[in-house]
Design a protein around this nucleic acid. Sequence first.
DNA 1: GTGGTTGCAAAGGTTTTGCATGTGC
DNA 2: GCACATGCAAAACCTTTGCAACCAC
Lengths: 161, 161
Amino acid sequence: VSSETTRTRVLAAGRRLTPQRDLISEVLEADPRPRSAQELWTEVRARAPGIGRATVFRALDALVDAGAARRLALPNRRSGYVGCSALHHHHFVCQDCGIVIELPEPEVSPLLRHLERARGFQVNHARLDFYGTCPDCLPRSRAAPRSSPASKTVRDPDYLG
Amino acid sequence: VSSETTRTRVLAAGRRLTPQRDLISEVLEADPRPRSAQELWTEVRARAPGIGRATVFRALDALVDAGAARRLALPNRRSGYVGCSALHHHHFVCQDCGIVIELPEPEVSPLLRHLERARGFQVNHARLDFYGTCPDCLPRSRAAPRSSPASKTVRDPDYLG
DNA sequence: GTGGTTGCAAAGGTTTTGCATGTGC
DNA sequence: GCACATGCAAAACCTTTGCAACCAC
């Protein structure tokens, strides 16, 4: 059974909560790593052998549409899916300890307003991922800097290709 | 012919600057909207009929690797490509006309500084994607709103699934 | 000169579709 | 009950691969 949040969201989106969708969502929620639709089909079939391939694709569409999952680009040119709990959030990832801190929208909206004023945009949505050092790791990394800024080329993370 | 920046970057990445790559890059730079590899093949063939499908896929890999293009997730579960000029930049995607506008780092750094002050982070790198309506599309969308505010639930934009 | 690159065609995957049957609301 | 959802299998599509010929460096 998937989370209450997910089931509520699917229904709120005007879609039906079928056992298949519930199971797929549960599998998504059980592991925070992104997986392709095909991989999810395999995983899900272990628990519901009769489930069809197309059902998984269609269910994922439904879940993404309902805001219960997100699609992202995997490095191998395929789509990956992750379950979603918060509706609007952003991420700070500490490159030292790996902790992921969720940043609520209000903490970020100043920039949105700034951009709207400065460029005349209307910003409906933003996806912001920050990489750096968290407060806990800062003292440590100041004491023993790991590498020169030059050699530590910060590239885009894999999932964003 | 593609931009000087692109050609320099391809060479700097230890890859060869072939006429095919140069042409593909030029086509990418000529239109700021993301297109799939297949669509790019069609576009490019209009100017170089003999070019192979695989060449386009391999060239896009090379360009992404060299930092002259970026891959992102299209709504139809395919990969889309946009040309990249600035090295460190962020994206504004207009959900009306599909145009992708690059935002230079300085335009965005206020938020970084704000986060660092407010939370004690040290931000080394950020990937920011904004979705909304660009100045050109705003008058049009104000004049003829596409749907009622209620039905227009602000969901994740198409490009992110 | 030589190793990376290309074009071709075929193979290998992934995603979609049509339709009869089933089922959540 | 009815519209939406499912399962199946084939079709459609996208992407990769193997290999001989080529050419950018």
